[in-house]
């Protein structure tokens, strides 16, 4: 069977590309880490890949607002390539800064020209950068293929602008994929379970096809059991909770190749 090819975009300030590549490799994909300049200069083709990833980091320093400058760059310089990629069945995963970028670029949800963004990421209510582990629950009604078969997850967040804010009650083209919860799985929780003050406790979202998924927590930081903060108390599992997300993506892409 042909191997699934994953392209991880690097831009100035991207800093989770190596561990994200490791996660996809563990899941069986061939991974290229590609600088955004190489795509813009046509030295690399998005169309040769089945999965596109925008990993965590502080692209362009998160100056002005998190992910904004890369979002504009993707929209203005690679808009058509990305549209073609989506239309031909590609998967897109955005992690942390990747979520900020996808939302602000009008990729998640897909905004047709002139339509105003209705969902964004703002500074955490605590006013602080928060690096902490969070409990998550998958929305069973979501079409998200990355989270299929997963009920609950335990992953770290690490961000200063992770608060989901919306300007509309319902969004077209968007579905909530992941909620912050407490240890018991209750979705009606506050700080620190919801570390940013995200509206409706939203931790991850996807498009209506389920093929574009983005989340604030870092699944690539929980691939091995020893990454769990309490493995010295509770024992280490072979795989961390985040691994299934990568496995789902690679399996789905392999099947549809």
């Amino acid at each position: 069977m042909a191997k699934v090819r994953t392209l991880i975009i690097r831009a100035p300030g991207t800093n989770c590309d190596a561990e994200t590549a490791f996660a996809f490799q563990q899941a069986g994909a061939i991974v290229s880490r590609v600088h955004v300049n190489q795509l813009i200069r046509r030295q690399e083709q998005l169309s040769n890949h089945q999965i596109l990833v925008i990993p965590g980091g502080f692209t362009y320093g998160d100056d002005i607002s998190a992910g904004k400058v890369l979002a504009n760059e993707l929209r203005l310089k690679l808009g058509e390539d990305i549209r073609n990629f989506i239309d031909s069945g590609g998967l897109i995963l955005g992690i942390c800064n990747g979520l900020q970028v996808l939302v602000k670029a009008g990729i998640l949800p897909r905004l047709s020209n002139g339509k105003e963004q209705t969902i964004t990421l703002a500074a955490n209510d605590s006013g602080k950068f928060e690096c902490r582990w969070v409990y998550l629950k998958v929305n069973e009604d979501s079409p998200c293929l990355f989270t299929k078969g997963i009920d609950r997850l335990y992953l770290p967040v690490a961000n200063g602008e992770g608060k989901v804010v919306t300007s509309a009650d319902t969004f077209s083209g968007l579905s909530i994929a992941l909620y912050y919860t407490d240890e018991q799985g209750n979705t009606n929780v506050g700080y620190p379970h919801n570390p940013s003050g995200s509206e409706k406790n939203i931790a991850g979202i996807c498009d209506t096809s389920g093929r574009i998924f983005a989340l604030m927590p870092h699944p690539e930081r929980h691939i091995r059991g020893t990454q769990h903060p309490r493995w010295t108390r509770e024992g280490a599992k072979k795989y961390g909770d985040g691994f299934q997300i990568f496995l789902n993506a690679v399996r789905w892409a392999a099947k549809s190749m």
Binding site: C16, C131, P156, E220, R221, Q227
Partner: peptide, 9 residues
């Protein structure tokens, strides 16, 4: 907690 102590995995 205000340092990212998990990056690089």
């Amino acid at each position: 907690r205000q340092y990212d102590h998990e990056v690089q995995g």
